[in-house]
Design a protein around this nucleic acid. Structure first.
Lengths: 209, 209
DNA sequence: CTCTGTGAATATATTCACAGCA
DNA sequence: TGCTGTGAATATATTCACAGAG
């Protein structure tokens, strides 16, 4: 049912535009031009207009965009009006930090349970979410109707956990492990790979300098 | 002195290839073809060869690449043979988790000090690094000959901290705050923006599904 | 007269396909 | 013969530039 393929870079910019519009809203600014958005987030005004044009016509010629309205459209486009049931696998340092991050809930990602294979962690809570044994993976995914799995396990375990999440029926995986995961088509996969980011930074610092 | 502009996507893939080559090395595999690397990390073999071609000829026609050699070249290309002095600004939940992450040291990023404006945090240590007052920003950057600043402060403070880091002479900034930062040309800036990642995931889950 | 929306032009990235070296 | 390295072809993304709505 996909009508047009939207470039990933466009989606990332839409997220950044929406953040900028929130600032403008906080400052009680009611109207904004594509040029003002553009200079606020460091892109060209044509880029802003092209990105928005994938989804409709939100502005008024000669005037600009109503901040409130455009922000509403962007939130809708980005799916931020929806709720998702989330399972987190791995309660190590990174998982523990992420479980406390309010940004998940703010965007509709509700962490229902956290699984770990370390018996010493099982039974304790992170904020209000209980850490449970890894064996409950299938049970909890069915029980809570889980949509999204967040992977914060070590690299060696990541593909195995992924396969189990997919088999149990999750629709999307957010992968924080430094590993390229194989998933079947139709499963949404997003990687947040700190080691790649560090190496790109290292490259940019080193190359031809 | 920049000879060719290398696409960022290429650099990210080089990092991923190098990780895959490490696995192969751990399995004592000595030779690998572009097709084997490609299928291992989910890209096309032509892509692998094109990416490598930016930097030289590392393979042998009819044979493939020597794993050890190619890994060595990639580490060199990515600058992983170099050391950088790093300052971290912000010792909150994210900063604390990051300060314990071994990946920085493994890639030559040596965290020399962590600054925070919270008096209650100042004086304690994260692993072996002391948390010091924010006022020492200039002093420590000069003293330790800091190359890289890692920003883990709240969004409202991020641009101010950035300006101070740049004024004090850092060459690169790794930004974990959810804010588009303005930096002068010549300063390397890399953003690790979890909120954008979450919103892209939300979009992919929602759009035309 | 201003600023959006958008075709056309340009720039960039990926894939194809094969010449040529080991 | 097998696989790399690479021009040519294609696909994708960005910028230009302007018609036209308000």
């Amino acid at each position: 049912m996909k009508v047009f393929k939207i470039p990933e870079a466009t989606v990332m910019r839409l997220s950044i535009y929406s953040r900028h519009l929130k600032h403008l809203q906080d400052e009680s600014i009611e109207t904004v031009s594509s040029e003002e958005i553009a200079s606020g987030v460091g892109v060209s005004s044509a880029q802003v207009r092209k990105d928005l044009a994938y989804f409709g016509e939100f502005g008024t010629r000669g005037v600009g965009y109503k901040v409130q309205d455009l922000l509403g459209h962007l939130k809708k486009i980005l799916g931020l009006d929806k709720k998702w049931n989330v399972i987190m696998i791995g309660a190590g340092k990174l998982g523990s930090a992420l479980a406390l991050y309010e940004g998940f809930r703010e965007r509709g990602f509700l962490i229902r349970t956290i699984l770990d294979d370390d018996k010493k962690k099982v039974g304790s809570k992170l904020k209000d979410v209980l850490i449970e044994p890894l064996e409950l993976l299938d049970t909890r995914i069915k029980q809570y109707n889980i949509d999204v799995g967040i992977i914060t396990v070590p690299a060696v375990a990541a593909q195995d956990v992924t396969d189990r999440l997919v088999a149990a029926g999750v629709k999307a995986i957010l992968n924080f492990s430094p590993r390229v995961l194989k998933v079947p088509g139709g499963i949404v996969l997003r990687n947040v790979d700190l080691s790649v980011n560090l190496e790109v930074l290292s490259f940019n610092l080193s190359f031809n300098k």
